[in-house]
Nucleic acid binder design. Structure first.
Length: 535
RNA sequence: GCGGGUGUAGCUCAAUGGCAGAGCUCCAGCCUUCCAAGCUGGUGGUGAGGGUUCGAUUCCCUCUACCCGCUCCA
């Protein structure tokens, strides 16, 4: 199975188009066509129903420590700029960063200075964080690198003054500020770029705002509102589906990495002592959800982050990943991340942005000794009215990509098999074996031939079904061709009016996957299709 | 971000410094009583801009998009 065939089918049948295609397209942006929009809506609706509106809050779900509540939310895309300062997104926005592959530390590209130095026939660029004692630090680091003693300090031949790392093009001879080896710094890169816009008529910096890079922050800043207006006790999950925007450097792989995309996120607030159990619950529950909707478990993995990948305040983060056809053998792409975020977010919005590196977490201070980014000052902690205990809840965050899930469902459903044609000869068939809940069109209605009054009866059946489902009517051409067209659209059921219908008011229902037909009464069609879709 | 490749009809692919072609699809009609290729007819195209040229889809440049590899992936 190759991605080109899937992309081709998506275009041909109207699942996905390139954005602004007539103008040459725009990198990282995609449009959903008539079938695609139905599919994606069904994905989102399945998530919302299963996680939120049909959630059973009376009973303890399998694997859960206790019953819990769920509510939904729909926040704006543009929020107060301070939100992104306290969330940490803003700091990562402005600047080019370099990462050290050896120490895993990250530096602002323009805040590292260095000097060329030569000794033992080797010339390197020694760096240090820009500051008052940088020359001293560089000297110490150079001595250590060349394995020289203080008394041999004159062996170091300096070439030029302290210069900014931004002046250096080739990083292979650069010694990172904390590294032991040369060339461990990555190329400078902007990441986590937020799209910037301006609120109000003035386009000055005072009106600067950002399109949200995630929906999660809207939930954190509304935590108290939701709690106060719903009278829920914890544990409580708050869910949101909505567009997010990230100015990705390298959008690629169809819709997998887009600059405008839709997220389905839950922030689950619970008592710190129970957060680990809830983390495990959500991780397993979310994997099971993809499975229930038909994703082949052999193509999915749950990848737990290793301890050194985790922020220290986090008990765990797991990526739910799918083996997309455009990825190399053995590689997977992230569909959803489930992470334990501790109280980092709520406290950052209360006290000011916390410093992820501190343990226990402390507010990150600016050069003036005051909080670098001031929080709201509002109390976002929780008082349990039964126990009278007051605490800042811990958060489990299952964060899924709606577009990635849609793409995974598409890829997973795509098959090419062989089925006989009207002469019994085997022919190639492209089919989307989508779960009936996700299928854009639930059923198609055909008259077997376009005469003998069959179209009239078929149209009646069509209009009846249309009250309940997205259905499609087609009377053109041979019936076999119509079946195949629906196979490509992923339509699970085709209802055919034939000669016998006119005698006994029955029709056949043809199954997309087995090609088997059953004959049922017209009056029962709607209920039978409904039963099959809901499984 | 770097290197390489590609861009011709809805799809798959031809051809050409001088009227751009096929198959499939699609549409209309005929035929057709259950799994696409029966008949007739029809619609429809050189990614964008600039240059060279009497004339450019073809040669050159720029842009753009997609694919592959590397890098990266909050």
């Amino acid at each position: 199975m190759d991605m080109d065939s899937i992309v081709s089918l998506c275009k041909r049948r109207g699942f996905l188009f390139q954005s602004s295609e007539i103008y040459g397209g725009l990198q990282g942006f995609w449009d959903y066509g008539p079938l695609g929009v139905e599919l994606k809506r069904n994905v989102k609706e399945a998530w919302w129903r299963d996680m939120v509106s049909c959630h059973d809050d009376m009973n303890t779900l399998e694997g859960a420590p206790s019953p819990y509540s769920m509510e939904g939310l729909d926040c704006t895309i543009i929020m107060h700029p301070q939100v992104w300062k306290c969330s940490g997104h803003y700091d990562l926005f402005h600047d080019f960063m370099v990462d050290c592959k050896e120490t895993k530390k990250r530096y602002r590209h323009d805040q590292l200075n260095g000097r060329w130095v030569e000794a033992k026939d080797k010339k390197v660029f020694v760096t240090a964080a820009a500051g008052d004692d940088e020359l001293e630090v560089m000297t110490k680091r150079a001595l250590k690198f060349y394995n020289l003693r203080n008394k041999n300090i004159d062996d170091l031949k300096w070439d030029g003054d302290s210069t900014c790392l931004t002046e250096i093009e080739d990083l292979s001879q650069v010694l990172g500020p904390d590294a032991k080896e040369l060339g461990t710094l990555t190329e400078p890169r902007e990441f986590n770029l937020m799209f910037k816009t301006y609120v109000g008529a003035l386009s000055g910096e005072e009106g600067a705002a950002f399109l949200r890079p995630e929906t999660a922050q809207g939930i954190f800043v509304n935590f108290k509102n939701v709690l106060d207006s719903t009278r829920h006790r914890l544990p409580l999950g708050i869910a949101q589906i909505g567009k997010s925007f990230r100015n990705e450097i390298t959008p690629r792989n169809f819709t997998f990495r887009s600059r405008e995309f839709e997220q389905m996120e839950i922030e689950f607030f619970c008592h710190p002592d129970e957060s680990q159990k809830w983390y495990q619950f959500w991780r397993d529950r979310r994997v099971a959800w993809y499975n229930e909707l038909g994703i082949d478990m052999k193509k999915m993995i749950l990848r737990e982050h290793t301890p050194d990948e985790l922020a220290h305040y986090s008990i765990g983060t797991a990526d739910i990943e799918y083996q997309f056809p455009f990825m190399a053998e053995g590689e997977f792409g992230e569909l959803e991340g489930v992470s334990h975020r501790g109280d980092f977010d709520l406290r950052s919005h209360m006290e000011g942005k916390l410093d992820e590196k501190t343990n226990p977490l402390e507010v990150q201070l600016g050069e003036d000794g005051k909080p670098k980014w001031k929080g709201s000052g509002k109390d976002l902690s929780y008082r349990d009215n039964l126990t009278n205990e007051k605490y800042t809840p811990h958060v489990i965050e299952p964060s899924a990509g709606a577009d990635r899930a849609t793409l995974a469902f598409l890829c997973d459903a795509y098959r090419v098999d062989e089925q006989p044609d009207d002469k019994g000869k085997m022919q190639k068939r492209e089919v989307l074996k989508l779960h009936p809940r996700l299928a854009p069109i639930k059923a198609a209605v055909f008259p077997l031939v376009k005469k003998d009054g069959m179209p009239e009866v078929a149209k009646d059946v069509y209009l009846k079904l249309k009250k309940d489902f997205k259905v499609f009517y087609d009377e053109k051409g041979a019936v076999g061709r119509r079946y195949r067209r629906q196979d490509e659209a992923g339509t699970p059921y085709c209802i055919t009016v034939d000669g016998q219908t006119l005698d006994d008011q029955t029709v056949t229902i043809r199954d997309r996957d087995t090609l088997e037909q059953v004959r049922v009464k017209i009056d029962e069609v709607s209920n039978i299709v409904k039963e099959r879709i809901e499984g």
